[in-house]
Design a protein around this nucleic acid. Structure first.
Lengths: 244, 244
DNA sequence: CAGGATTTGTACGTATGTATT
DNA sequence: CAATACATACGTACAAATCCT
């Protein structure tokens, strides 16, 4: 333990795989490639970077996990869409890991979602056009009907929250909204199954959001959003206290 | 090798690697492992999942990219910290790709950062204690001094924005703040080098944020945050118009 | 400090599954 | 259906890093 060899410079071991990762990234930027554009085959990449197939494959798998490249079996390798899928994977797994004890990550995700939607209330309240408002109402009505039948309405809920962010014309916010929604929908089941009353209540809270938006009432919209997240927050809090 | 067809009538298109990925994830949750806990060696994983070392390694590399596992050469494989590093990698690369044309992603990142900081202004304004406020002022002063010397102050800026979010006691928001900051700091240089005047101006805008926070004035804080992001937004806008 | 044991990293060869022509 | 091009998977051997005796 007492050997603190400060002598040699701290040059990185420079793993072959990491060099290949950088090489592929460089290739994409140098050639101005866009999502969907084809990349050289594995064999060509080996030749170009001077590495074995093993190293190239591992590098490609790393980039594939980040959605920087997209590999299609028997077809080829292409530039990926760089979605936020990696964020979802990582966060969802973190959420599942901590769900047994407290539901720490789930609570944090809910808080972020609420923060973003409340923070953007001004742009949302006067950015939604009539058609979007009509669609929102239709979605909220659909939730209520599904709840009445005792069914859940995951997809309706997802579309609702995505549409709410549409007036911002910011792809990144849209994708973040979708990512957090997905994380929540993956982790929430660890809290237990939803009751029919909870479904009905949540559906009505979505309708309240629509009505606030229709009135272009920013403060009301903020309150409606907060009310919408209240039930899930209580669920999380009660799960915590049960454990203690 | 058509002598394996005694079992399932439908042959799965399931890739070996993906099975290993799920297997490792399951192993972690089943054994309630926490970040830093050791995982079986590659050889043991091969035995456990019944896959070759190549497949196991590629699976591990996928999980490694998401920071779900952490591999140390010559030492072993451990449960990772599930940081938002994957988000940074993916977004930063996307930003670099689109930087040549417009600076679309950069603009979106800036907008998100501003949205979050403005949206959380209430909690920030009355959540910061005196010590935190003092530290913020010290950081802002440090920026001004650095600017005077013509130096940049990346690390001070990062600490400033992280500290600003500290009163929320929400790890995820902290990490998101750090992640977006990092993406911006990676992509911004494509706009060109910063002038000394810009550095001085931005430093003073940070000081304005501190003063608004000290006064616990929510509206002033929101305005100060907006003003803080105004210069970079103008830079991005002017870069766009130049191209057009 | 040396050297062996353990573990991950790299390379190569071969066979198989998959999609296009 | 055949041929071709490509990714996938397995197995083995050796190199490099880390730890421990």
């Amino acid at each position: 333990m007492a050997k603190f060899d400060a002598g040699p410079p701290i040059t990185r071991p420079a793993l072959r795989r990491d060099e290949v990762v950088s090489g592929i990234k460089d290739y994409i930027v140098r050639n101005q490639l866009r999502p969907g554009d084809p990349l050289p085959t594995e064999a060509e990449l080996c030749e170009a970077v001077g590495a074995s197939r093993s190293s190239v494959r591992e590098a490609v798998k790393t980039l594939s996990a980040l959605d920087i490249v997209d590999v299609r079996h028997g077809h080829g390798t292409y530039v990926g869409r760089m979605s936020l899928n990696a964020l979802v994977e990582s966060l969802a797994f973190r959420g599942l890991l901590t769900s047994e004890d407290d539901h720490l990550v789930l609570g944090q995700v809910v808080e972020i979602r609420q923060t973003i939607e409340q923070g953007l209330a001004p742009q949302v309240a006067d950015g939604l056009d009539d058609e979007q408002l009509a669609t929102l109402r239709r979605l909220a009505d659909g939730m209520a009907e599904a709840a009445e039948r005792g069914e859940d309405y995951l997809e309706l809920d997802r579309q609702f929250h995505l549409l709410l962010m549409e007036p911002l014309h910011n792809d990144l916010i849209q994708q973040l909204t979708g990512a957090f929604w997905e994380v929540q929908s993956i982790v929430t089941p660890t809290l237990g199954a939803a009751h029919k009353e909870a479904l009905t209540l949540t559906a009505s809270l979505h309708l309240a959001i629509v009505e606030a938006a229709e009135a272009h009432d920013i403060a009301a919209l903020r309150n409606a959003v907060a009310a919408h997240y209240a039930p899930i927050r209580e669920l999380i809090a009660s799960a915590k206290s049960v454990k203690a």
